[in-house]
């Protein structure tokens, strides 16, 4: 398949079952809501090393937040429901509660909930109080700028992690430009985040390593410098740079839509191929075939 003379490789992205939550952070102004959201989503690129994957979903206008202040919606993903509860308590406690003027609310309606504010309230050392409104309990924890309001329970739901696109270009500049355009298009999809720095990752990994203690190692098949030595290089000769975009979403449809928009936005001069990472279909619960995302793509030849 071709889009604007860029080859769309007939392969699939292998995605995984995860658990996701949506957190709404509000603050006195957008600057501080963003500060807390950035802090909460820092060091959250991959569950392999960070225990969770997180990102800012969107800015939320003041008119749409429970307390009428500007907010940021953050999505956070882990591999288990219990793990998600732990990460939420850690990150809301360390990154949101600490940030001036913020409050933190659940923004995901779900039958499954985990306790967050109900754990963080103990920071109040007995001075905490709560308000129950519409069956939602909000804890008020006294802090040095007034009070930190945090919802007792947060909704969690099964989610999808690890959707991805691999962008293969001739050089860094066109590949980076393609990745930036694709990431921008993907971010317009509700319910997804791109957990890596500004949405793009260059250190794609494969499972395992020649070292016993290392569970993931460099994806040598896509490293240009290893084309001559890798046993199964996937790179054509003209490719000198590969960048990956990883997508986590609250459901499969959101991840597919993000990949679809990324595929449409990336092609440009200097980009040779768009592929996707998988493990032979042996590990992930979801296979997202690129050809299924592009029913109107031109066939090669």
């Amino acid at each position: 398949m071709l889009i604007d003379d860029v080859v769309i490789v007939d392969t699939f992205a292998e995605a995984f079952a995860m658990w996701g939550a949506r957190v709404l952070i509000t603050a006195e102004n957008e600057k501080w809501a963003l500060a807390a959201a950035r802090s909460m989503t820092g060091f959250a690129t991959s569950v392999i090393g960070c225990k969770c994957e997180a990102g800012i979903e969107r800015a939320v206008p003041a008119a749409e937040t429970p307390d009428g202040r500007p907010g940021m919606a953050v999505l956070l993903f882990t591999t288990s429901e219990d793990g998600l509860a732990k990460r939420l308590v850690e990150r809301v406690g360390q990154c949101v509660m600490t940030c001036p003027t913020t409050a933190c609310y659940n923004a995901l309606a779900s039958e499954n909930t985990v306790v967050v504010g109900g754990s963080l309230r103990y920071f109040g050392d007995g001075f905490q109080a709560s308000k129950l409104l519409d069956s939602r309990r909000f804890w008020r924890v006294p802090v040095m700028d007034g009070e930190f309001v945090v919802e007792e329970r947060f909704g969690v739901q099964p989610a999808v992690g690890g959707g991805n696109l691999l962008l293969l270009g001739e050089d860094v500049a066109p590949t980076l430009a393609a990745a930036e355009a694709a990431a921008a298009a993907m971010r317009t999809v509700p319910g997804v985040i791109l957990p890596f720095p500004d949405g793009v990752v260059r250190s794609g990994s494969k499972v395992g390593s020649r070292y016993k203690s290392v569970i993931a190692s460099t994806n040598d098949a896509y490293c240009p410098t290893l084309r001559a030595v890798a046993t199964a290089s996937q790179l054509p000769e003209e490719v000198g740079c590969v960048l990956e975009i990883v997508i986590d979403g609250l459901d499969l449809a959101a991840v597919e839509e993000a990949m679809r928009r990324g595929l449409a936005a990336a092609p440009r001069s200097g980009l040779r191929q768009i592929s996707a990472g998988n493990y032979g279909g042996n590990l992930g619960q979801y296979k997202i075939a690129l050809r299924d995302l592009l029913p109107g793509a031109r066939r090669e030849g």
Binding site: P66, R69, A103, K131, F138, R140, G146, V149
Partner: peptide, 11 residues
């Protein structure tokens, strides 16, 4: 001070 929780109640 400006109680955030009061915004919730008023809303």
């Amino acid at each position: 001070y400006r109680p955030v929780s009061l915004r919730l109640v008023f809303g």
